[in-house]
Nucleic acid binder design. Sequence first.
DNA 1: AATGAAATCGACCAGCA
DNA 2: TGCTGGTCGATTTCATT
Lengths: 170, 170
Amino acid sequence: MESDSTERRFDEIDLQILERLESDHDLNLSDLSEEIGLSKSAIHYRLNNLKEDGVITAISADLDPQRFGLEMLVITEVYVTHESGYAADTGEAIAATTGVQDVYYTMGDVDFIVIFRAQNRDQINDVIAKLIAIDGVNETSSTFVMDEIKSDGRVLANMSDEMRENVRSD
Amino acid sequence: MESDSTERRFDEIDLQILERLESDHDLNLSDLSEEIGLSKSAIHYRLNNLKEDGVITAISADLDPQRFGLEMLVITEVYVTHESGYAADTGEAIAATTGVQDVYYTMGDVDFIVIFRAQNRDQINDVIAKLIAIDGVNETSSTFVMDEIKSDGRVLANMSDEMRENVRSD
DNA sequence: AATGAAATCGACCAGCA
DNA sequence: TGCTGGTCGATTTCATT
C-alpha cells in the first residue's frame, strides 16, 4: 500500500473502474469485465495496482447515521486565543474529541471548522463544552443543520469534466 | 434493500461486525468468524440483514482526492434573498452544481453551508460564480481550508460510549 | 437465527505479448 | 509492464435444524 500522495494520471479504463467501485463495490467482477471489455484478471490486476498505489485508500461499509439515532448534525466555528502561536496542538486536541467527525484548519477569521453528529441536545452541549475546555480555544459558534441536502464524499462522482480531463493520460 | 430510516437497536455482535467493516471491508470472513466466535454463514446472514435493512447503505471504494489533484477544499456560506420563501429549490440547485460535495441547510444567520474540492483557483472561482448565479442566492462568503486535520465520515468509529449504549439492545 | 454442504466467485500464479 | 487462462481458496447460497 504505497502512497506518495502526489497527483497522477489515469487512463479511461481505470477511471471507469474507479467510478463504478466508488459508488458500489458490491459487484460482480464478471459484470464489470463484460461492461469494460477486459478480462477479470486484468481488472483485478488494475485494482491491485490502484490499491498499492494508494489511489484506493480503503474498501469500507457506509452506515446510515439515522439508524443509530444520530439525527443531529452540528457545524461549529472555533476561534483560538491570539497568544497561542501555531494552533497545531489545539487542532489535534479538537480532532481527538469524542464524536467529532471533521476538523478543518481554515484561513481568515475563523480558525477551525468542526463538524459532529449527536443523538440529542445534551450530547451537543457535551461536545461544545469539551471544545471550549481545550487549551487555546477562545470562543465557539455553532450552527445546527436542519437539512442535509447533499453529503457525498465521493471523489470522482463529484468531479467536473474539466477536472476529469486534467487527470486523464490520453 | 429496505430502509425506513428510523432508529433501531443492535446487539454486540452486529456492532462488532459493523465497526470492523466500516473501517475495512477487505475482510477475511474466516478471521471475523473466529474473532467473534460465530460461523461464517451466520456472519454472512447478519450482514445480509444489515444491508437489506438499510443500516449498511453501500460498500464502496474510498479514493484519495490528492491523487486526482484535488488539493483545495473550500467551505462556502450562502445567503439567500429575503423575498424567496422556503429555499428548497435553491438548495437543490446548489446541490446540483458540479463539483459540490456537501450542502447543508442551516438555522440562523447563514442559509446554506457548501463544501467543495478544486484542483486550482480557477475552479474555485467557477463554482462560486455558479453559486451566485443561482436564483435566490444573494451573497456568498468562502473560506479556504489550509489543513484537513480530520475528515472521517465513519459513523460507529466516531460514536462515544454513551451514544453506543443508546443503540445497544442488551 | 444459525449450520454445513454445494455452487459460485474472486485472488493468485505462471506464462506470454 | 499489462494481460490471459486456469487453479485454488474463499464467499455466497440453500436446504435443513
